[in-house]
Each structure stands twice: as C-alpha cells, then as structure tokens.
C-alpha cells in the first residue's frame, strides 16, 4: 500500500493505482473530471487532458515536484505523493484552457441535443467554461450520419475520446469503425457505408461522454430530465439483463445500462453490466421488464433534478 495526499486528504491505496482512481476512492470534490478515461475500458485515457493535476511532491523518497501538470488518469501514485486538484490555481487555469479547446469546435446545440442534461461536457463547461467564446473562426462541421442501424453519429459534437473505439475492440468481435484522418480533421467513421452491427455495439452510446453517438430509437422523443429512470431487469441470454428503463407514465422511452456517478457502466456481481442491443432497442414494453425500483441518480448534473438522488447532491454554483 502507498500513501497519497490529494487536496489535503490522505488515503492509502494499492501500489499501481492511478492518481484519478485514488481520488475516486476519496470521493467528492477532489476527483478530477475525466472525459476520455473509462475505468471499464482497457487502454482508455490520457487524451482529453481534463484530468490534469499538479504533483507538488513526487514521492517521499524524491520530494521534487513534477514540472508539468500530469494526466491523473494515467499517472500512478508513488508513496508520499502530494497532489493538488481543486486547490491548485494552475490546474484551474489549464483545465479551463482544455475545456475552451474542447468547446471551440463544439456546436452550441444543447437545446436540440439528446445528451443535454446528462452530458459530461455540459457539466464540465459549467464548472470550467467561460461564458464568452474567444473563437472567432468558422467551426468545423460535418453532416450527421448513421453509423449503424440504431446509432446516429454527430461528428460535430465528438471530442475524440476514443471510448467507442475501445468498446468495439473489447466488446464486439469485429471493429468496423475507427478514427480516420488526423489532427483537427480526425473523425470517427466507418469509412464505407457499413453499418455497425453487433450485439453489443449499442454500448458505444452509453460510453460516449457527449451527444456524438445517440440512440436512434430515442432521438428527439423527450428530454432526459422529464423521464423517470427505473432499475429494471429481464431474462436475457446475451447480457445480464440488468438495465435502467427511462419511463414517461407507463411507457418506456429508452433503455440504458446502469451507470455510476462517473457515468460508467456499473459492475454487477463482479462483472461490468454492459447490455445487449436487444435489451436496449427492442424491449420497450413494460411486459419485458421486472421493475426493481426507482434509479437513484448520484451525478452532479441536470439529470439529478426531479429524481431520487443518492446522498446529498448540491446544486452547482455558477462561475462568475
């Protein structure tokens, strides 16, 4: 076990733990935001740079501070390491900078985006964004396309977190989409009009931190905060059958996996409870499901309003 201090809170964690995961063990305000890292997907992280933190003491043995901010999702803790997240002005300034970069080409289409209300970029800009843009250039734009029978890709909104690529590599037997081109022209695509078609491809929607990949069976049906999320289960031969059904009255509007406070699919019985496409797209009838009870939302986001919440979810303060 190694000892690490993050924003004056000290915890002992297993050697090899990353700063981000150590922070998640402490919980609360010390946890840096993560847009690309996803603990259930091997190889994710390091790309978005929103989780940058300051290491003011490298370790007990070598107390020198690290000269650059480091990506907390891919930096392992050392014994005696001291990390600053919320308590560092430098982190605040640079994270603001990263958020500005993520937003310059992002459309301001939250009012018509299905992800609004549960969007991690929305939350992040609320915390770290500026109310004004300094970007006077033309934004990069793409036409929305179908990359599968049930998945719509809005490349305009994509922040290139690569999570969906990891899903395709790790959950499906054949990856047919990927990152094409490079630099600011890099994009998610299937290249040829080949539909993403696999029993577990729908999980790409659940891992997408923004509204780039949306569920075509739910598009424009309702705002997420108007729906009542319920934990529900069904008999399924392909997946665990444990999901969340999002209801309006007695109607099921959409089905998603069960997600934790970081937006990650939960582990159930020691296994990540990804859901199959049949559960996600085809079981929209109450008869398909056994309702277990209301889903407790524990995220700091619009989605927690009007819903049962877990613990105390404080309303956010607006940055001036």
């Amino acid at each position: 076990m190694v000892k690490v201090t993050i924003d004056d809170k000290t915890i002992e964690v297993e050697a090899g733990t990353t700063i981000l995961n150590a922070a998640r063990q402490i919980g609360g305000e010390v946890v840096p935001p993560a847009m690309c890292y996803y603990s259930k997907l091997t190889g994710s992280g390091g790309k978005c740079r929103t989780c940058l933190v300051e290491v003011s003491q490298g370790s007990e043995k070598d107390p020198r501070p690290m000269p650059k901010l480091v990506a907390s999702c891919s930096t392992q803790v050392m014994d005696g390491m001291v990390v600053k997240n919320k308590t560092s002005q430098r982190v605040k300034e640079n994270r603001d900078g990263v958020v500005e970069f993520l937003l310059i080409n992002h459309p301001l289409d939250c009012p018509i985006c299905d992800q609004a209300g549960e969007c991690h970029l929305q939350d992040l800009s609320f915390e770290n964004g500026s109310q004004k843009t300094r970007f006077e250039e033309e934004k990069r734009t793409y036409e929305p396309i179908d990359i599968g029978d049930k998945i719509k890709l809005h490349m305009n909104r994509c922040i290139l977190c690569y999570r969906c690529v990891h899903v395709a590599n790790q959950l499906t037997n054949q990856r047919v989409h990927g990152i094409l081109h490079r630099g600011e022209h890099a994009e998610i695509s299937t290249y040829i009009e080949k539909a993403v078609d696999n029993d577990f491809s729908g999980n790409m929607i659940d891992v997408c931190p923004v509204g780039a990949l949306t569920d075509k069976t739910f598009r424009f049906k309702s705002r997420v905060w108007f729906l009542k999320p319920m934990d529900a289960s069904c008999e399924c031969s392909k997946c665990s059958g444990k999901a969340v059904v999002w209801m309006f009255g007695n109607e099921i509007y959409r089905v998603t996996a069960r997600k934790d406070q970081y937006g990650e699919v939960e582990d159930i019985d020691g296994k990540t409870a990804w859901i199959c496409n049949e559960c996600r797209y085809d079981k929209k009838d109450l008869k398909n499901w056994t309702i277990e009870g209301p889903r407790k939302i524990n995220r700091h986001s619009v989605i927690s309003t009007n819903h049962y919440t877990e613990g105390k979810v404080e309303p956010k303060k607006l940055n001036s």
Binding site: C48, G97, F101, I104, L160
Partner: peptide, 21 residues
C-alpha cells in the same frame, strides 16, 4: 496544425486555432 496527430485536445484544437488566427 497539419502534423498534429489529433489525439489530445490541446494540440488538436490549439494548433488549428493558432493557424487560423
């Protein structure tokens, strides 16, 4: 901007932005 791989956001977006300005 032309040579950025596009993997991390500060470089992907920042180099393109500087070029335009």
């Amino acid at each position: 901007a032309h040579e950025s791989c596009g993997q991390c956001s500060p470089c992907r977006e920042g180099t393109g932005w500087m070029e335009k300005v």
